[in-house]
Amino acid sequence: MTTPLGLSLEQPSPPVTTAQAAELAGSYFGLHGSIAPLAGERDRNFKICEPDGVTWVLKVGHPADSAALSDLQSSALLQVAAADPELPVPRVRKALDGSTEILWTPPAADIQAPCRVRVYSYVPGVPLHTVPASARLRGELGGVLGRLDRALSGFDHPAARHDLIWDASRVTRIADLVDPGDTEVRAALDHVAEHTLPRLVRVRHQMIHNDANPHNVMTEATGRDIVGLIDFGDIVRAPLPQEIATAAAYQLADGSQGLDACLDLVRAYHVLHPLTEEEATTVFDLMVARLILIVVITGWRAERHPHNRDYILRNQHRARLGLERALSVECDEANATILQALETSR
């Protein structure tokens, strides 16, 4: 079957040893210290801790990723650092020659294209999914995303509209990957295609993080406060409400609060980066679209990359539960609830 997933999702990540990563860090970025691998979907990531305790992440990008896409991520982080220096996101560490990345080709017979190697500051903490859920944390996350999108407002880049399968506003592209027997997902996809996607031309579009899942959100060890948002690998120019919808989608499967839990994020986001009424009424269906993407894409990829199955499927079960919960709510009822929540949030 011809798929729309792209080479960076269909092909395995580049082979990189810890010794090779250490050599890259020292020779090109002047970094020396203990080094250990980190998980990743497309890239090879390594945590480097210098003797003085300062910690960095060395990222060896997938050889199928373009130079423009790599530059987009670094440029966006530089934009955020300038617009909101206190926002808890990674900071770019430039190479010794002043560039934001270096090119390196792994010494493997089947790797011919070079990989782009970058270094970002390490954001400490524990992933949101490992701590008890709370309205406080959901509100803080909504606020961080509101600040982030405000910082990215007006930012553009030649690769801003790149071809990203995780773009919920283009969810119909994965229609051929849906199991013919999965009537639930098929019905949800048809609804979004018919009732929501045509309306997105009337909402604002801008650069968004697009992947505030609980593995990319860091809290302090006690789980009291949000301390960071990581992984800008899926940044893209997309409908503005897709940002908070993506984050809120992961809340539907947490506990029994359902849509109420999502409202904590949406209200806090709205305070800092207000949504129009039209934008607010697309949030729920964009949540559904994100859940469809998770269920379909992760299932497809896990079959083709069994060695990375656990990481790929880390959100699969929760997404299925969330989708079931979303489909039990009438769309008009959900939209009315969201609009009412936003009216009382400012």
Rank of each mutant, 00 (worst) to 15 (best):
V227G: 07
L229D: 10
L252W: 10
V201T: 14
A221I: 03
V201Q: 12
V217N: 10
L240P: 00
D234T: 10
Y250R: 03
R224T: 13
D225E: 13
I230M: 07
V217I: 15
V227K: 00
H209Y: 05
P239W: 01
M218S: 08
D225S: 12
A238Q: 03
H205K: 12
H195D: 13
R202Q: 14
F232Y: 11
H195V: 14
A247P: 05
A212L: 13
L252E: 03
A248F: 02
Q206S: 12
D225M: 00
A245D: 05
Y250D: 04
N213C: 10
I230K: 01
M207A: 14
N210F: 01
R204W: 00
D211P: 07
R202L: 07
H215G: 15
I235P: 01
M218D: 09
P214L: 10
R199I: 02
V227P: 01
A249C: 07
A245C: 07
G223N: 08
P239F: 01
L197N: 10
P198G: 12
H209I: 04
D234W: 03
A245T: 04
P239A: 15
F232L: 03
R204E: 14
V227M: 07
V227C: 13
H195W: 06
Y250K: 03
R237E: 15
Q251G: 12
R224C: 05
D211V: 05
P198F: 09
H215A: 14
Q242P: 00
A245H: 02
H195T: 15
I244G: 04
R199W: 02
A245P: 06
I244P: 05
T219P: 11
V203I: 03
G228F: 06
L252M: 14
E243Y: 06
V203R: 02
V227H: 01
I244V: 15
L197M: 06
A238G: 00
P214T: 07
Y250P: 01
R199V: 06
P198V: 11
L200C: 07
G228C: 02
V203H: 04
R204G: 14
I208W: 06
T219N: 11
P241F: 01
P198D: 10
T246A: 11
N213P: 07
T222L: 11
I235D: 01
H209L: 09
V201I: 13
A249D: 05
L252F: 14
N210Q: 06
F232G: 04
Y250H: 13
Q251E: 14
H195I: 13
G223V: 05
E243A: 09
A238T: 10
F232M: 06
Q206T: 09
G228L: 06
Q251M: 13
A247W: 05
I244M: 11
V201C: 09
A245N: 03
T246S: 11
D231K: 05
